[in-house]
Design a protein around this nucleic acid. Structure first.
Lengths: 235, 235
DNA sequence: AATCAACAAAGTTTCGAAATTTTCTTTTTT
DNA sequence: AAAAAAGAAAATTTCGAAACTTTGTTGATT
């Protein structure tokens, strides 16, 4: 079977994961139409396999569909960024509260470990001149930290909702944020989240999470007010 | 084109809506396997059309899928009921807070109207001996009330998440709750929600919502402790 | 008699093409 | 020349069948 796109096609994981990863790492322009043929040839899939993947991603809220007009990458605006961040803050906060209530020392240790890795990486990023080479690994490490924070929440329903909101927020960040969401202030923000979680201080932890996520929206506001060249994708 | 199941096939709406409605009104046993052939013949669809619908419903969290083992109606347990209700309370509460912050008099009027219809219906239900004939209309009216409550929330992201959680909670209620979720205490609970919303009292409103949704779980606990005959669907 | 392997049946997924709808281009009319 | 209509091209959706996987049954072996 042919792999027409050597850059993406020979990676591990299912075809679904490969397309999702491409989407989450900015492989498609925001607002752009996602032609089935495009997917077909780029990932070496048949028409129906491609369609099935697009349907799945639509179900997760990572794509939109218009009847008889195919699939779109959602338009990203300051408004939609705020909305997604607000939802994510709500769910991250609820998961954190549950984790704090139910997590044992094992959880604390895993959280401390995840933060240590993240802090180490972010320290290097502060000192580096070019951020781009770090973005992919940082995205993963940041996700792991937040996932670990939520991991002691007993409700898988809540954890899954959080995970989904996180993915959607990441897609937005990739599209609209200058350095994909990393800034110097990210370092102390993560530290505050860790500290309050280990102190079992629910409201402090939720406040820290909200502050962390709201600061994303602000960084758009300041650096590039009305429209960005990223935004007008299609034509 | 043939419509093999006259009971469901000639209804309005897309095939997707028809299947979804069947799912939400208890047309399939919880935990049961959802064979594609079954859907195919019952709704007069081709194999791929049926599959597409099942994929969509899976994306909304209304079905589960196991690789090469098809689609299942999610297992309903006291645990999962609690989880879904907790998520729903969180999202209903957040939407209500936003509505209270942003809703105008028009919103208040629509909310009062929706509650009036609901209260009228619920009063009749309290006096009736048989609840079953009311369930379908009550389900719709209850949904409309909660949707109206959320309707002044400016974030469609948040509103959609709420709507989805509501649908999932309804599917659980249909499966596990004796009278599908209606009890005498439902009447004052809805009244309290309305009152606190109109008073623009966010924390009272959220408390009322939480109390309303938590009372569902309790009604399972009391009436049928460990296992119910509904639960073991497949064999 | 119980265990295991081979076989058969049922069910799920994948495929490539036909049918439908939308979109773009060209032609005709005012 | 602009607007409307007709036609062509492109893209999306739908379809029925082939390929593959799981599940259930029968028969052979210890």
């Amino acid at each position: 079977m042919a792999n027409p796109d050597p850059h993406t096609a020979h990676q591990h994981g299912s075809a679904f994961d490969r397309v999702k990863t491409a989407l989450m790492t900015g492989g498609f322009k925001a607002g752009s139409r996602l032609k089935a043929d495009q997917i077909k040839t780029r990932f070496g899939l048949s028409a129906s396999a491609a369609r099935e993947i697009l349907l799945r991603l639509t179900g997760e809220g990572l794509l939109h569909q218009e009847e008889n007009r195919g699939f779109h990458v959602p338009e990203v605006t300051l408004q939609s960024l705020n909305d997604v961040m607000q939802l994510r803050a709500l769910l991250e906060g609820a998961c954190a509260a549950e984790s704090i209530a139910h997590g044992d020392v094992e959880w604390e240790a895993r959280l401390a470990a995840a933060h240590h890795k993240l802090a180490h990486l972010e320290q290097k990023m502060r000192e580096a001149s070019q951020l781009d080479p770090f973005i992919e690994i940082w995205t993963r490490t940041d996700s792991e930290f937040h996932e670990t924070l939520a991991s002691a929440c007993p409700s898988s329903t809540l954890r899954n909702a959080r995970q989904n909101a996180h993915e959607r927020s990441r897609m937005h960040a990739i599209c609209i944020l200058p350095t994909y969401g990393f800034r110097d202030r990210t370092v102390p923000e993560h530290a505050t989240i860790l500290e309050s979680a280990l102190n079992r201080d629910v409201s402090a932890c939720q406040a820290a999470i909200t502050a962390h996520l709201e600061s994303f929206s602000l960084s758009v506001d300041v650096l590039s007010p009305p429209t960005r060249h990223h935004l007008k994708g299609t034509k």
